[in-house]
């Protein structure tokens, strides 16, 4: 790791000021991606701004409309929240299976989304539930948030403060992990929402994406059979030693089928 200046602001205003002042500042949330990246010397920020002391970024609020999760809320907290488990059980279950136990104890929803790792789990839930991402500047609809490989709609100097998930009629997430890293090789989140069915895929492409053909089929007939025959094109999907684009495309259908069945 290259050395850097470390800051631990106590307020959003201080964090934004530190970020603005830094030549090449990086925000540190849970650090589950940033610190390994720094250790491998793949990044050399001048300043690291730790958001851990900003109390307003933490916490879970559940009301009749849905669940709002503060950006610095840890995966383990979402997984263990009885309120989340009651409102959106699929979300709690997803959080309970991110990474490993120690990753869940440190990793945060804001960090995960801002990083937009193609194999992260949360993007599937955000897109699958049609969540809203709130930043210090604005709110961003899930459909507008994920732009590409490690690329989001966030602008420079913009910090995620919370994410609001509307409560679906039913939902489920199914993941087929990469055997080595245990990240999602393919993860599919399906939800019956107020605006109709949503099917969001992570792991398979450069960033999370929706499968309209499956959503249309589910709108007509909410059943595993409805999606069983729908294949996403392999072209453009990720490929590595553990899964070719063709294999991933196939798994999207299998995981979608299983998610619909699990959602009931």
């Amino acid at each position: 790791m290259y050395d850097f200046a470390y800051h631990k602001p106590k307020s959003m205003a201080d964090a934004l000021a530190a970020l603005k002042k830094a030549a090449d500042g990086k925000l540190l949330a849970g650090g589950m991606t940033l610190i390994p990246t720094l250790k491998q010397r793949l990044a050399q920020p001048s300043d690291v701004i730790d958001l851990a002391a900003i109390g307003e970024l933490r916490g879970i609020k559940v009301d009749g409309n849905g669940v709002t999760v503060g950006a610095m809320t840890k995966h383990a907290e979402v997984a263990a929240s009885a309120d989340v488990a009651k409102a959106i059980p699929a979300l709690a279950k997803l959080a309970a299976n991110i990474g490993d136990g120690q990753v869940r104890n440190r990793g945060t929803i804001g960090g995960s989304l801002a990083n937009s790792d193609p194999a992260a789990d949360y993007p599937a839930a955000v897109l699958g539930l049609g969540a809203t991402i709130t930043t210090n500047e604005r709110t961003i609809a899930a459909d507008d948030f994920f732009k590409g490989l490690f690329e989001t709609a966030l602008k420079e100097g913009e910090i995620i403060t919370s994410v609001t998930f509307p409560k679906p009629a039913k939902a489920a997430y199914m993941k087929f992990p990469n055997p080595a890293s245990r990240y999602a090789m393919v993860g599919v989140f399906v939800a019956q929402t107020s605006s109709g069915p949503r099917v969001a895929v992570t792991g398979a492409g450069p960033c999370a994406f929706r499968v309209k053909a499956m959503e249309d089929a589910l709108a007509k007939n909410w059943s595993a059979d409805a999606v069983a025959g729908i294949k996403v094109p392999a072209n453009g999907l990720n490929g590595d030693i553990h899964g070719s684009p063709e294999y991933r495309a196939h798994l999207v259908t299998v995981m979608a089928k299983r998610a619909v069945a699990a959602a009931g």
Binding site: Y6, G31, M32, I35, P36, K39, V48, G101, Q102, V103, N105, R106
Partner: peptide, 8 residues
Amino acid sequence: SVKSCTLL
């Protein structure tokens, strides 16, 4: 429990 290799 945390991984002390992934924490400053």
